[in-house]
Design a protein around this nucleic acid. Structure first.
Lengths: 152, 152
DNA sequence: ACAAATTTAATGTAAAAACATTTGATGTCA
DNA sequence: TGACATCAAATGTTTTTACATTAAATTTGT
């Protein structure tokens, strides 16, 4: 359904307002889909995102600051998110040798294995997005970049 | 910046993954912008969204169920959101005459006045989005609709 | 070298969200 | 009608988020 039907609104003030509302609506749609999937593995969306960031660095460690920088939603409690992941043995925390303020976080084998399993699930539901051609998906990304002010 | 630079990731598995991450990232960017603005008026983003829904119906009432249906992020505590708005005299709650399970919610004059003020602020920051042409904004909306499976 | 400022991560706390349950009202159908 | 299912809204509870503060380590400037 188009965004007007979905939220039962007649018209938007401008194409920009419409785009903003549509981004938020679509984001929620995506988060719900993804969370439902992750729930079965007892991982939250935020935890999943942190795990992916850690895998991106593996086998190198990354500091808590580094995680925050890369997170999709910035927020202050990366520290506590890491706590949760440690409880599940998905990551380990290690004092950073050259700066004792910092803490290195590294994904464990168990964490990597979980991610591998989740990847399969992910690609499964991502097929649901193939109503868009690959070119259209790229155009979408490009428009979002431009919206945020990407000069690219 | 393009999404790769923003989150410091080299490459995405597919244009679809990239689009999904970009939607979430952009959503967060938008929410932060908007929340910062609303904070000055002591209104949360969710409360603002509910107020806009109520204005869309004004002068007709709408039930709590009706609000949930139209909310950008569905969630269970519309009831408590309405509580908060009542405390600020921005809405009133009234028993529904023909079905006593339901509760009608109506925006007050004070609520409408606040929205009018917020609208000005909104259009101010929305100019920040004009790096996109109106046509591009519409294309963006259309691609999002299609992504969600809109047959239009 | 040393006081002051800054940085990093952790923690305390209040508000909000997620999720389940409850309560009261209406609809269904044998 | 009356038992049962369903629905709307509110409420209880736990987890997560937002925001501020703290504590320790490092950097900066004199």
């Amino acid at each position: 359904m188009s965004i007007e039907q979905d939220i039962q609104q007649k018209a938007f003030k401008s194409p920009y307002t419409k785009a903003v509302v549509n981004i938020m609506y679509t984001n929620n749609w995506l988060c719900t889909l993804q969370s439902d999937l992750l729930k079965r593995y007892d991982v939250t969306l935020q935890q999943y995102n942190v795990l992916r960031i850690l895998r991106g660095q593996h086998p190198n460690p990354i500091t808590v600051c580094g995680i925050i920088e890369r997170m999709l939603d910035k927020m202050s409690n990366a520290s506590r998110l890491v706590d949760k992941l440690i409880l599940k043995d998905l990551v380990i925390r290690r004092e950073c040798p050259h700066d004792r303020r910092q803490v290195d976080v590294i994904i464990t084998d168990k964490g990597l294995a979980l991610l591998a399993e989740l990847d399969n699930q992910q690609s499964e539901w991502e097929t649901a997005l193939h109503k868009l051609t690959p070119e259209e998906a790229l155009t979408l990304s490009h428009l979002l970049d431009k919206l945020r002010g990407s000069t690219e």
